[in-house]
């Protein structure tokens, strides 16, 4: 039982970080971006490329303490975050910005489907379909709770790293949104873009900030997924529905809702495995989603209108 909960939190961390981007884009740019999953995939692969480059120049590094990776992966993660943000800004410049001027929400949603296809196939063309790994080091899981207490709990240091960095990212984002001018401008623009403009806020700048934050968190989520599972071109596509389930369950537009929604979806997926089998785990997230929306149609943290 404890093991399933821990596994759920690890899957949930990846989903939560991805869902933050989905909900931010929805609340500020007013459309559901179905290409967001591809940012996770690109983030994961760009980090892998940076890792190979770093190792080629500086040579392989010793793993950091109990982790399976050394300092090159942390640098690769930072490089990937910057590159994924640049990719998101490029897609916005080439596609979404043009459609924002003349199109409507449906046009943008359909365009995001197109962007997802292009990004996924481009990635598969460049990297191929064979799964990759950041490290092939075998990690020994640490026993945190003995087997006779609720089935016990074993967790790898890499998984602890994922949980820790997710918590740091969420706290960092909270501070950013509540304490900085850009963060407050993002919250203001999400409720009233026209008022934001007459208040002197450059909404285009806010939109750029939204893409950058969403893409950075997507890159982190992608790397976490690659670190705890493996790198596959379908990584983002497989996570797309859970990301949207988490964002809707938490209350679309709410960052904190996306985090809680991500953890709930992760837990639902993990806890359902002994009951329905691993092949139906994704479906359970939707059962939870439907159940919560029946009770609270605006999601857990959504505004009632």
């Amino acid at each position: 039982m404890l093991q399933l909960v821990a596994d759920g939190f690890i899957i949930g961390s990846v989903i939560a970080l991805g869902a933050i981007g989905v909900t931010l884009v929805y609340s500020i740019l007013r459309f559901a971006n179905f290409a967001h999953g591809e940012l996770l995939t690109w983030g994961a692969y760009l980090a892998w490329t940076a890792l190979i480059g770093i190792v080629a120049v500086w040579g392989p590094a010793e793993p950091l303490g109990p982790f399976s990776f050394g300092w090159p992966l942390l640098v690769a993660l930072a490089v990937s975050a910057v590159a994924t943000a640049a990719l998101a800004l490029l897609v916005d410049r080439l596609l979404f910005r043009q459609l924002r001027r003349h199109g409507n929400a449906i046009t943008l949603i359909m365009a995001s489907f197109g962007a997802a296809l292009v990004l996924r196939n481009l990635l598969q063309f460049i990297y191929g379909a064979v799964p990759e790994y950041y490290s092939r080091e075998i990690q020994v899981a640490i026993r945190l709770v003995p087997r006779d207490v609720l089935g016990g709990l074993r967790i790898t240091p890499d998984q602890l790293f994922v949980l820790g960095l997710t918590a740091v990212s969420v706290v960092g984002l909270h501070i950013f949104l509540t304490r900085t001018t850009v963060g407050k401008a993002m919250r203001a623009t999400s409720v009233n873009p026209q008022l934001a403009r007459v208040t002197g806020i450059d909404v285009d700048r806010v939109i750029r900030a939204t893409w950058i934050i969403g893409a950075v968190l997507a890159a982190v989520a992608g790397v976490f997924s690659g670190l705890t599972v493996q790198l596959r071109p379908q990584l983002g596509l497989d996570l797309l529905l859970p990301l949207f389930a988490a964002a809707i369950l938490g209350g679309i537009g709410s960052v904190y809702g996306a985090v809680v929604g991500g953890l709930i979806v992760g837990l639902a997926e993990s806890l359902s495995v002994p009951l329905v089998g691993a092949e139906y785990r994704a479906a359970t997230a939707f059962v939870v989603l439907i159940a919560i929306l029946l009770i609270r149609p605006t999601g857990l943290f959504g505004e009632r209108t």
Partner: peptide
């Protein structure tokens, strides 16, 4: 901005 406090409404406007 209904989702911001009075202070944050004014603080944000003061950023210009």
């Amino acid at each position: 901005f209904v989702n911001l406090s009075i202070e944050d409404n004014l603080d944000l406007a003061a950023s210009i």
